[in-house]
Amino acid sequence: MYDTIFSMELPVGEHIKLLRNRISNTEDIKNSSRMSIVTGIHGDEMEGQYICYELTRRIENERDKLKGVVDIYPAVNLLGLDNAIHTIPKERLDMNHIFPGSPDGSMMERVAYALIEDIAGASVCIDVHGSDIFTRESLQVRINEEFAAGLMEYAKLMPANLIWKNPCPSVAASTLVHSMNCIGVPAFTVECGVGNTINTKYGDRIVDGIFNVMKYFGIWEGEAVHHDDTPVCDDSSIDFMRADKAGLFINSMNKFGRVKKGQCIGKIIDVNKNEVVQEIIAPNDGILFTVREFPMVYEGALLARILVQEVEK
């Protein structure tokens, strides 16, 4: 059952809403550990939708093991989701660039503000993203460099392929997780898959990780799901491979994982001349964790990311 946390009237017979599904066996919310799962900030990212369902289903199966509060916010950018648009449809603004929002700003700034107010005081917050339609991502936890030290032990509970300490200086300050960390709620992002699709394998792993986090905070009494150690990296340990030429990107990699120095990741074809204009060659041994999905590329388009070394275990 979803509660409406915040609502604003649209011009023609409809309201935009911020919805929350609260699952709890106690009325004493204030004195309980509380986890907030947020998704749908980007309207073309679908894994989160599956996770809302699957997480709820698994909790309901063993409801008596739930000792705290789980709050699920499934559709923060409601109109973006409904239109399969990454951004806020009308203004074309990235909703993850408007936090902490404002109580007297634009409609979506007010939604952002209402979300922050509602999460405030939670034990932990996880913002579930999928990738956009342009790149395919393996399962990653992304944490702001600034708060990395405090977040690492929670991030390691997720069975991810990678934990990425991501500085992104200008943009990071306007994200949900940054705003939450600033008010003392440990928050991180998970990222996986490709836009407008659901990869249930990633979805199930994220839900496993969410149960591990719940267990850590005493919200769940079930068993933790064991997983291998996750490599940790920052920008300096990643090869970013970008298109030098415009054309059609043809991917040679059918899966993520180990690549050898010199291995071909893909090529760019000039569609007018029918020739290969760029071969994308791994410059180092490493682990491929991002690859271009959308074939049409301009100079600068991201084609692949390869983890070359870990910064710590």
Binding site: L10, P11, I16, S106
Partner: peptide, 8 residues
Amino acid sequence: PLVNESDV
């Protein structure tokens, strides 16, 4: 011409 509640 169309406004949302809270639009400037």
